[in-house]
């Protein structure tokens, strides 16, 4: 009996580092090593480990349709065993990603898969990721919708996609909305508003932050908001990195705009 307890303890002690090693390898783009770590021993009832095995197999070289199908089957099994715990939420998200990016799928299936992630746990960080991806589908993969409807549908996802729990992701979601509007030549107050929301979140990356200020200045200028544009130009000039080659161009555009009103 003592021996069995000792063995169980040893396995338990051993399992945690193996799992950590697997996640470390996975986070470091070492997919094969991660898969080896996760599958060194049978996952058994360890659902996180089963998730790790599936997530690493997805990109284990050589990537093949057969492997992707295996991963889908493993993820569906995880969901079938328990549809509500953390591994299940992640499995649902990965299934949506597989439909979107790893194998051919109809747009309706992709949309439904992302919506399933959001519906299952709307406050979860993965729901925020899924909402951001769904916004992209609506913006660029729904040619059946008129352009204003594409943008409106993507913007409706703001309560989830713009959640404060992942501020960097939220910032880019708002920026993606604004840039889609600019791509479709729909430069209007909404685009300015989305850029303002992205700026309010405050991205950590210095180049994203400074580019946002230029975008704000240029869009405000195009909409005739002279004072706001000047303010954004000033804000950019005060924070630009020394390696930013746009500095002089911005300074001159600001000076030109300031002169225009005189």
């Amino acid at each position: 009996m003592k021996g069995i307890i000792a063995l169980g303890f040893a396995v338990g002690v051993h399992a945690a580092p193996v799992a950590d090693e697997g996640w470390q390898e996975l986070a470091g783009y070492l997919f094969r090593d991660a898969h080896d770590a996760f599958t060194r021993e049978p996952a058994g009832a360890d659902r996180r480990r089963a998730l790790g095995a599936a997530a690493s197999l997805l990109n284990e070289p050589p990537v093949s349709p057969g492997k992707v199908a295996d991963v889908e089957a493993q993820l569906r099994q995880l969901l079938a065993d328990n549809a509500a715990d953390e591994p299940a939420i992640y499995a649902r998200y990965l299934l949506a990603r597989i439909a979107h990016l790893h194998r051919p799928a109809e747009t309706a299936e992709i949309e439904a898969a992302y919506r399933a992630v959001i519906t299952a746990a709307p406050a979860h960080p993965l729901a925020q990721l899924a909402a951001g991806k769904l916004a992209l589908v609506l913006l660029y993969q729904r040619p059946d919708l008129p352009v204003p409807a594409r943008i409106a549908a993507a913007a409706e996802l703001a309560p989830v996609a713009g959640s404060a729990q992942l501020p960097e992701t939220a910032c880019i979601y708002y920026r993606v909305l604004a840039e889609a509007a600019l791509y479709y030549d729909m430069l209007d107050e909404r685009a300015l508003g989305w850029l303002q929301r992205a700026d309010a979140v405050g991205p950590q990356d210095v180049m994203t932050a400074t580019s946002l200020r230029i975008q704000l200045a240029e869009v405000a200028r195009a909409l005739g908001h002279r004072e706001a544009a000047l303010g954004y130009y000033r804000s950019y000039l005060a924070t630009a990195a020394p390696t930013d080659s746009r500095y002089h161009t911005v300074a001159e555009r600001m000076a030109d705009l300031a002169k225009e009103a005189k």
């Binding site: 470390q24 996975l26 986070a27 783009y29 991660a34 990537v63 992942l166």
Partner: peptide
Amino acid sequence: RQKDSVLAGLYQLEVGTGLGRAKFDRLAA
């Protein structure tokens, strides 16, 4: 595609200490 797997790894490593502004959030962005 690769980032889908990498994010899964980062999520498990960082979820305990907070995902906001962590590598998971930045890579997802």
